[in-house]
C-alpha cells in the first residue's frame, strides 16, 4: 500500500485558499472548524511565504500516542484517522500536534468539548466506507472512491500535492531541479522524520 503524505510547495502557494474552501465544501465542515488552513509567514514583507497546512498524517503520530482513550488508528495507506465514538474531547491531541490540526466544536475544555474533528485525508472514519454514518461524522471518503484529497486535487498552482509520499517527493524534486530553486517540503522533518533532498 501507499504511504500517503501531503506536500506543500511553498514557492508555488499563492494563498488563494481554494484548498480550504474545497475541504469545507466537500465535507460540509461547519463554521469555526478548519481542517485545512493557509498560514502566511512574514505577511507583507519581501520574505513573505504562504503554506497550506492540515493534518500531515505523521509517522508515529503524536496525537495517537497521547490520546487517553486510544481513539486514533492508522489505515493501510498510513492515513491517521480517529473514532468520534471514542473521543472524549480532552484536547490533548491539540497540545501534541505539531501542526495545530485537531479542531473542536466547543471552545472551553469543561464538560463536553465535543468530538475532535480533523483532516481525514478524505478517507472517512472507522465506519464502513461510503456509508451515511461515515459521511455525517467524518465527511466524504474520496480515497475509497479511488480519488485523492480534494484540496490537493483542485490546487490552482499545484502547490499542494497529495498522494504516495515517494511519488509526490519525486514530482517535487523534478520540479525543483527544473526551476532551479525550492524551499523544501514544509513540515516533513517534523511529521515524517525525513525530508526531500533538494
Amino acid at each position: 500500500m501507499a504511504r500517503m503524505k501531503f506536500l506543500c510547495d511553498a514557492d508555488r502557494c499563492i494563498e488563494c485558499n481554494a484548498c480550504v474552501t474545497a475541504c469545507k465544501n466537500e465535507h460540509e465542515v461547519p463554521w469555526g472548524i478548519n481542517r485545512r488552513r493557509v498560514v502566511t509567514l512574514n505577511d507583507g514583507k519581501p520574505s513573505e511565504r504562504s503554506i497550506s497546512m492540515a493534518c500531515m498524517h505523521c509517522t508515529d503520530a503524536p496525537c495517537a500516542a497521547v490520546c487517553p482513550v486510544n481513539c486514533f488508528f492508522t489505515t493501510a495507506d498510513a492515513v491517521v484517522l480517529h473514532s468520534k465514538d471514542l473521543c472524549i474531547g480532552c484536547g490533548y491531541c491539540f497540545y501534541a500536534c505539531p501542526f495545530g490540526a485537531p479542531q473542536y466544536p466547543r471552545v472551553g475544555n469543561f464538560g463536553s468539548r465535543g468530538k475532535m474533528d480533523k483532516c481525514t485525508y478524505c478517507a472517512g472514519g472507522p465506519e464502513a466506507d461510503l456509508t451515511t454514518a461515515e459521511y455525517e461524522k467524518y465527511g466524504s471518503n474520496r480515497l475509497a472512491e479511488g480519488k485523492l484529497p480534494l484540496c490537493a486535487e483542485m490546487c490552482s498552482t499545484k502547490a499542494l500535492l497529495a498522494g504516495d509520499g515517494e511519488i509526490i517527493a519525486q514530482i517535487y524534486k523534478e520540479r525543483v531541479v527544473k526551476r532551479g530553486y525550492g524551499s523544501g517540503a514544509w513540515g516533513w522533518k517534523t511529521a515524517y522524520r525525513e525530508t526531500v533532498a533538494i
Binding site: S112, T132, Y138
Partner: peptide
C-alpha cells in the same frame, strides 16, 4: 453537519 445540531460532535438526525 459534522458536529451535529447541538454542536456536540454527535451528528443527529441520521438518515438525512
Amino acid at each position: 453537519n459534522l458536529v451535529g445540531p447541538n454542536w456536540s460532535g454527535d451528528p443527529q438526525g441520521r438518515g438525512a
